[in-house]
Nucleic acid binder design. Sequence first.
RNA 1: GGCGGUAUAGCCAAGUAGCAAGGCGGCGGUCUGCAAAACCGCUAUUCGCCGGUGCAAAUCCGGCUGCCGCCUCCA
Length: 495
Amino acid sequence: MGLRLYNTMSGKTEEFTPLGDTVKIYTCGLTVQSEPHVGHIRAAMVRDTLMRWLGYLGYRVVALENFTDVDDKIIEKQKEYNKDWRMIAQDNIDTYLRACDQLNIMRATFYPRASQHMEEIINLVVQLIDKGFAYEKKGDVYFRVRKFPEYGKLSKKSIDDLMSGARIAPTESKDDPLDFALWKAAKPGEPYWLSPWGKGRPGWHVECSAMSMRYLGETFDIHTGGEDLIFPHHENELAQSLAATGKPFARFWLHNGWVTLTGEKMSKSTGHYSPIKDVLAKYSANVIRMFMLKTHYRKQLAYDDERLDEARAALMTIRTYIDNAANKYGEMEEILEPMMLDTFTEAMNDDLNTSRALSVIYELIKRSYKEDDFKIAASVNYYYSLLGFTREIESVIEPYKDVMEVVREVEEKLKSAGRSEILKEICAGFHDRIINIKHVNELYSQIIALLLDIRMKLRDEKNYELADYIRQRLLDNNIIVDDTSDGSTFRSGTV
RNA sequence: GGCGGUAUAGCCAAGUAGCAAGGCGGCGGUCUGCAAAACCGCUAUUCGCCGGUGCAAAUCCGGCUGCCGCCUCCA
């Protein structure tokens, strides 16, 4: 069986096949009035996982992720901080994209912004007025919800239920409290664009319809976003799009569960959230990814430092295995045919069940330690990067300098102990070892290997004091040394 | 008030009918200069509570309770 995805529209898990050659994805990105937090990253991580898996399955993917850079909130911020709304938007977009890159989240194909698609937005609104689905009132334009019989289908709400719970500001000049704004007249001092209804700006929702149609066409494959967007955002987006084109809009609606903090949903409007930059200051990209992939994307996820620490430990088990395997078999990137186990494929095909996919990795690891087959190691390595984890040292220059410092310290200690000849002896072959090196990472590894050789000599001489000193200094630099019966190996102390 | 989600070991978490995955943590052992890694064994007779349907239920049905959320800006 191929990929199956849970579709919010049907409430069921459905077989996925794309409409055309290329899978077209639209992700509801940020309204960029304040800094991105862990919740936004989760949504991006879902898109990333989906893109990676579709890529593995052999599909070409075009993915859009929008920035809604003009709305009520950002205008409020402009007044509050006396800072141009465009600057506020740009700062938050920069922070977000930088975080995504750091997290190894695959870039979307395009990141369109509402403010740069006014023509498409205005055209869509005109179309809706022409078709009788929208009306103008004093420079505002509203969508007539009752004109659209399928309203509520996505969020499973009936118009009557909505009416009974409606809390609509009485000042608005709508014909019906449920109607929502497509276009808002500008007040003095607010940013505006010229339109057939005077100076104004788009309402929330309409930009997503306009931009998805522009880049993906009237019908596309998958729409993703946080669960909190189902109503009203996606319901409205759907209504506008269907009303305008009369054609199906998104074929699959995927919604991720939200991230909670101390039991409550993270939300920038309440200020109850963890900014992603703070989290990245404490935890690595891989750890944050593990934290998210451990839980199925549709479930609620509680953000908590203890959970992150646990994710780090869980990841360390895999990382240790991969580093040990690399020591044993050599680097595995070039092995072209890792085993793709049915259990892994089946887990991912089952609505991207990363939790189950991870368990397959752990079972492989357990098996590998017993069977001693490099193919298993290569497969673990492959799965690891397929899920978006990395083994790169972000920059090898700093750790390289630190390790050279350890070399100097050891040299001093040997000299003062009158044992300089150990260094001379061990270093004799060093030139040959590094002569063919192509990457600085390998040089770094060779320097560490040199220290381990010195240490081995010291251990043979039962000079445990200096041997332990070397081990400790390497540990200070996040390099863990393991002594096995076949000699010493080292691995990363961080993930 | 209306609508929706969720409840599985100390913690996290898969699992939609056939003997309860996996991770973290813990305990005991092997290996070892020490440390670490690894390996072996143990760690839920039971899946929020009550009732029902099945030969068989964590899994289906009904009821109850707790937690979270949406109905207003939100990934």
